[in-house]
Amino acid sequence: MRRVIVSAAAVALIASATTAFAAQTTTGTVKAFNHKSMTLTLKDGVKYRLPAGWKNPGLKTGEKVAVTYDVKNGKRTASAVEIRK
């Protein structure tokens, strides 16, 4: 019985650790895009760093977007930005 409980606890710990680092997606409206610093700011004030080599799909202020990101060291790093209609 003890082995079953320990095994179940280990599985639960591993499952929770993997989901804690899973990418998240949010939607919002572009407030600012700075190509030089590779940052995207949404109207809610949240900033996202964009990866090196990221290609701008034509972002403009006021455009609705979906941002897929991870949080690393308290900073949001986008892996994808998609323009929404």
Rank of each mutant, 00 (worst) to 15 (best):
M1R: 08
R2G: 14
R2N: 11
R3A: 15
R3T: 15
V4L: 12
V4N: 09
V4E: 13
I5N: 04
I5P: 03
V6I: 10
S7I: 09
S7T: 15
A8W: 04
A9D: 01
A10L: 09
A10F: 02
A12W: 02
L13C: 03
L13K: 01
L13Y: 00
L13A: 08
I14F: 01
I14H: 01
A17Y: 00
T18Q: 03
T19G: 02
T19Q: 02
A20W: 01
A20Q: 00
F21T: 08
Q24H: 03
Q24R: 13
Q24I: 00
T25E: 07
T26K: 02
T26S: 07
T26A: 01
T26R: 05
T26N: 01
T27M: 04
T27H: 05
G28A: 01
T29I: 12
V30R: 07
A32D: 10
A32S: 14
F33S: 04
N34C: 01
N34S: 11
H35K: 13
H35L: 10
S37G: 11
S37H: 12
M38T: 13
T39S: 11
T39N: 12
L40G: 06
T41Q: 13
L42W: 04
D44W: 10
D44P: 08
G45L: 04
G45D: 13
Y48T: 05
R49W: 04
P51H: 02
G53A: 03
G53V: 02
W54D: 06
W54S: 08
N56T: 04
G58Q: 09
K60T: 14
K60I: 09
K60L: 13
K60E: 15
T61S: 12
G62Q: 10
G62I: 06
E63P: 05
E63W: 00
K64R: 14
T68S: 14
T68E: 15
D70F: 15
D70Q: 10
V71I: 15
K72N: 11
N73I: 01
N73D: 14
G74E: 07
G74W: 03
G74D: 11
K75L: 12
T77A: 07
T77G: 07
A78V: 05
S79A: 13
S79T: 15
S79K: 06
V81L: 04
V81I: 07
E82W: 06
E82R: 15
I83S: 03
